[in-house]
Amino acid sequence: TKVFYNGTYVEFNNPEKAKKYAEKVAKKVGGTFTEKNGQFHVE
């Protein structure tokens, strides 16, 4: 499961961990995250 952010991504074996990371990054940058095709995108 990949989490895309700012033109790069971090890959996780565990979708649950990926979601938590996406939430954390989104919170940090004051943005939101969306799930597309089983991957997370932070905006």
Rank of each mutant, 00 (worst) to 15 (best):
F33I: 15
G38C: 08
G30Y: 06
V10F: 09
K27Q: 12
T1C: 15
Q39S: 13
K2S: 05
F12W: 03
V25C: 14
G7L: 05
Q39R: 04
F40V: 03
T32Y: 14
V29Q: 06
G38Y: 04
Y9C: 15
N6M: 12
F40D: 01
V25K: 07
N37S: 07
T1L: 06
F12D: 00
N37D: 13
G30V: 04
Q39L: 06
E35V: 12
V3K: 00
E43R: 12
E23M: 13
N37L: 08
Y5K: 02
G7H: 07
E16M: 11
G7E: 05
K24P: 00
K27S: 09
G38D: 04
V10H: 07
K27M: 12
F4A: 02
T34P: 00
Q39K: 04
H41N: 06
Y21M: 03
N13L: 11
P15I: 12
G38I: 01
K27V: 08
F33D: 00
A22W: 02
Y21F: 13
T1S: 09
A18S: 02
T34K: 10
K17F: 11
H41P: 00
K17R: 11
F4W: 15
P15A: 12
G31H: 04
G38A: 05
K28P: 02
P15H: 14
G7Y: 06
E16V: 11
V29K: 05
N6P: 00
N6I: 05
G31A: 09
G38V: 01
K17V: 13
E35A: 06
H41Q: 06
Q39F: 07
V29P: 02
V25D: 00
V42S: 01
E43C: 15
T1E: 02
E16Y: 10
K36I: 14
K2I: 07
E43P: 03
K17Q: 15
E35R: 06
E43S: 13
N6G: 10
V10T: 09
A18W: 02
F12E: 01
N37I: 04
A26W: 03
E23N: 07
E11C: 15
F40L: 07
K36N: 07
K28E: 14
A18K: 00
A26C: 11
F40E: 01
N37Y: 08
E35C: 15
G30L: 06
K24R: 12
G30N: 10
T8S: 12
F40H: 02
V3Y: 01
T1N: 08
F33P: 04
E35Q: 09
V42K: 02
E23A: 12
E35N: 06
V10R: 12
K2H: 05
N14S: 14
P15L: 11
F12M: 03
A18D: 01
G31W: 05
G7Q: 06
E35I: 12
G7P: 00
Y5L: 07
N13D: 15
A22G: 03
N14T: 14
G31N: 03
Y9R: 03
V29M: 10
N14H: 09
A22L: 02
E11Q: 11
A18P: 00
E23I: 11
N37P: 03
H41Y: 15
G7N: 09
Y5T: 04
K20N: 10
K24I: 12
V3W: 00
K20G: 07
F4K: 02
N6E: 07
G30F: 06
N14A: 07
E11A: 11
F4R: 03
E23K: 11
V29D: 04
K20R: 13
Y9L: 06
Q39C: 12
Y5A: 04
F40A: 01
E23L: 09
N14E: 09
E16L: 11
V42W: 04
F4Y: 13
K17D: 15
E43F: 15
T34C: 15
T8F: 13
K36E: 07
N6L: 12
E16A: 11
F40T: 01
V42C: 03
V25N: 02
P15Q: 10
H41L: 09
N6V: 04
Y5R: 03
Y9F: 12
E11S: 13
V29T: 10
V3P: 00
Y9S: 08
Y9D: 03
E43Y: 15
T8K: 13
T34A: 08
T34R: 11
G7A: 05
V10G: 02
P15G: 06
K27R: 12
N6R: 13
K28W: 13
V25R: 05
V3S: 00
F40K: 00
V42E: 00
G30D: 05
N37T: 04
K27A: 11
N14Q: 07
H41W: 15
E43L: 14
A22F: 02
E11P: 05
V29H: 08
K24N: 11
E43H: 14
G31P: 00
K28Q: 13
V42A: 02
V25G: 02
K20Y: 09
N14G: 06
T34H: 12
E43Q: 12
T32C: 13
T8D: 07
K27L: 12
Y5F: 13
Y5P: 00
A26T: 04
V25P: 01
Y21S: 01
K27D: 07
Y5E: 02
E11H: 10
K2L: 09
K17S: 14
T34L: 10
T1D: 01
F40N: 02
K36C: 14
Y21R: 02
E23V: 08
K2Y: 10
K19F: 08
Y21L: 03
E16P: 03
G38K: 05
F33N: 03
K24D: 12
T1Y: 15
Y21T: 01
V3L: 02
F40I: 08
K24T: 12
K36A: 08
K19S: 05
K24L: 14
E16I: 11
T34S: 11
E11M: 13
V10M: 10
V3R: 00
A22Y: 02
F4N: 03
E16W: 10
Y21I: 02
K24H: 13
V42T: 02
T32Q: 08
K19M: 09
N37V: 04
A18E: 01
G38N: 06
F12I: 03
V3C: 05
K2M: 08
K17P: 05
T8L: 10
